[in-house]
Computed example of a mutant assay.
Amino acid sequence: MANSTGDHPWHRVPIEPQSVDAPLSQAAVFLVVTVADSPDAAATAREVVSGISDLVKTVGFRDLGAHLSCNIGVGAGFWSRLTDAAPPTELHPFREVRGAVHTAVSTPGDLLFHIRAERGDFCFEFERQLLDALGNAVTVVDEVVGFRYFDARDLLGFVDGTANPTGSDMAAAAIVGDEDPAHAGGSYVVVQKYLHDLASWNRLPVSSQEDVIGRTKVENIELADVEHGQKAHKTLNTITDENGVEHDILRDNMPFGRPGHGEFGTYFIGYSRELWVIERMLERMFVGDPPGSHDRILDFSTAVTGTTFFVPTRGFLESLGD
């Protein structure tokens, strides 16, 4: 299926999403870069981005069972330098969310590369070749190597991503549709790097940890919502609109860490059909619902990055090389 409106190549690209719906992998790299302020740098980035499928094949053919993939997100500030296509309707830079106690910071980023595979060496080799191709056209502003931890748990010890939509619900939650025809098949994505104070967290009794998260730690059973006081993390991340319709997002979070450096964290990455859904989640977490009643997980987990991107279709990326 193709959109044949207009004369530009990007008007005629197939509506095939990138690998947004890929299952949770064993390994991942989250790479955020800025592109140098020159026409040559933008041209280099455009060439590399348009040929990303070939690079996946170049590295991935060694073991097809490794399921190497790479999703590319484009930031609002770089969109007009990458293409003359109108930007997605909701795309804008990450908006800082400042609560009474905690802040969701906004940090730079022109391109996001979400690299996934069942083998860490494939992620490594793909990133190495990718950065070689980009050269001095880009500056790496954040690089996180993630790993799957036991049965998809975070370093706080809880299962992460339980509420992810599946099947047709996944597309409805994460993939843009007819509301923005020029960008149908794409997805908004927000990334944040959280650093955990594990020492303080582990001093909490398990029952108190469960109250913070809203699920049991071992069995992953959802707990009832509290009627008074600070709401649990899972409650604050449940978004219902004015018509009572619940809106989901697709999370592909990964733990990361360097025990020798005392670094322990979770890399949050949320794909959404509608950017406002993630923004409302963050407002409820950092400002609170009601205001002043923030998500208690933030007392142990600090957001040190925050960036928004749009993940266009495969055909859109390929058309950039025309």
Rank of each mutant, 00 (worst) to 15 (best):
T58I: 14
D169L: 08
A66L: 05
G73R: 06
E227R: 08
L320K: 13
H102G: 02
P205I: 07
K57H: 11
H8M: 13
F124D: 11
K234Y: 10
E16T: 09
L91S: 02
C123F: 15
N164T: 00
A66C: 03
A104M: 06
T238D: 11
V191Q: 04
V138Y: 05
A42W: 10
W79C: 09
V159H: 12
P17I: 02
V49R: 04
N220S: 14
L204P: 01
S38W: 11
K234F: 10
K57Y: 13
F124R: 09
H247Q: 11
V176C: 07
L64Y: 05
T166M: 07
Q129E: 15
P291E: 05
A104F: 06
N71Q: 02
M254G: 02
F147I: 06
E96R: 07
S50K: 08
H11V: 11
N243S: 15
Y188L: 00
S50I: 08
G185W: 06
M281I: 13
A28D: 08
D180C: 03
T302K: 10
M1H: 15
M1S: 13
V218N: 14
A85T: 05
S25H: 09
K57I: 13
H8F: 09
L236N: 01
V20P: 00
A224I: 11
P312A: 03
L82S: 02
R46G: 07
R98I: 09
A45E: 05
N3Y: 14
G262S: 02
E210S: 12
I175R: 01
H92K: 06
A232E: 06
P39L: 00
D322R: 15
E125K: 14
V226T: 15
T162G: 01
H102Y: 00
D54W: 12
T308W: 08
A117G: 02
I297Q: 07
A42I: 08
S4L: 15
G51Q: 13
T107R: 04
P312T: 01
F309G: 01
V245F: 13
S25M: 14
E143P: 00
G288V: 07
W79G: 04
L112R: 08
L282A: 04
H11P: 07
A85M: 00
E96N: 04
D110T: 09
G120W: 13
V176I: 07
T235M: 10
E227G: 15
T235I: 02
Q209R: 11
L130C: 10
E90A: 10
E318H: 14
V190E: 04
F158H: 07
T58G: 08
A232H: 04
I249M: 13
V287F: 05
L31Q: 05
P14Q: 12
I297T: 12
A22C: 03
T44C: 08
T103S: 08
